[in-house]
Each structure stands twice: as C-alpha cells, then as structure tokens.
C-alpha cells in the first residue's frame, strides 16, 4: 500500500491525536474511564469513544489524501480538539440514548 507519508509519521500522527483528544476531554471534565462494570457502561469518557472518533476523523482525512500542514500533525491536533468538543457537547444530538431501564429490551 502506498502512503504519501511514511508509516512512522502515520503512527506519530495517530498518537498525537489520541494524546490531544484525551487531554482536551479531561480539560472539558469528561471522566477518564467509564464506571465499572466497564463493558456494560454507556458513559462517555476520554478514552472511549473520544479517541475512536478522533482517530476515525483523522483516518477519513488521510484516506482522501488531505494532510494539511506539517505532514498531518496540525490536522491531528485539530481533529483531537474537534472530537473532544463533539463528545462533550454534541454527542447526544447525533446518537440515541442508552436503553433507559436495565433489562427492558425493546428493539
């Protein structure tokens, strides 16, 4: 597979976006991890789904060969900030809420 930037730079870009999104999410007072038991938790946190959304947006930009300045590093920082703000303020308008009562499955 041919990339416009090297594999190492790609890895660095993803690490930058993960790091920035976690820092900004913590700054916006999201919890670092969901509460226990984590595998059933619907809480939005800094690790999940903020980093996933940041990496997904960045992967979308890279896959259409849009790298912007400094081989994608600036884009990585911008996407991390956008992902954290999205999860904190706009998440509830896009995705449906959790099923309200535990055990009540109606889909």
């Amino acid at each position: 597979m041919i990339y416009s930037i090297s594999g190492t730079l790609l890895l660095i870009n993803y690490l930058i976006t993960i790091f920035v999104s976690i820092i900004v999410a913590l700054f916006l007072r999201l919890p670092l991890l969901p509460e226990k038991p984590r595998r059933f938790s619907w809480t939005k946190s800094a690790i999940f789904p903020t980093t996933i959304i940041a990496m997904g947006l960045l992967a979308f930009c890279f896959s259409i060969n849009f790298y912007y300045l400094y081989d994608g590093k600036l884009l990585a920082i911008i996407m991390g900030i956008i992902a954290a703000i999205f999860v904190k303020y706009f998440f509830k308008y896009v995705f449906p809420d959790s099923p309200s009562v535990k055990g009540d499955i109606d889909e």
Partner: peptide, 21 residues
C-alpha cells in the same frame, strides 16, 4: 492502515445506532 481505523470508527457508529455501547 487508514482503512482499518476508518472501519473501526464506522463500526462504532453502527454499534451506537443498534443500542450497543
């Protein structure tokens, strides 16, 4: 690699729309 990560992101969206964390 970008495609694999993009697939993870799309699977996450699909999961949330299917009442799954």
């Amino acid at each position: 690699i970008n495609g694999g990560i993009l697939a993870g992101f799309l699977v996450y969206i699909g999961n949330r729309l299917c009442a799954d964390p």
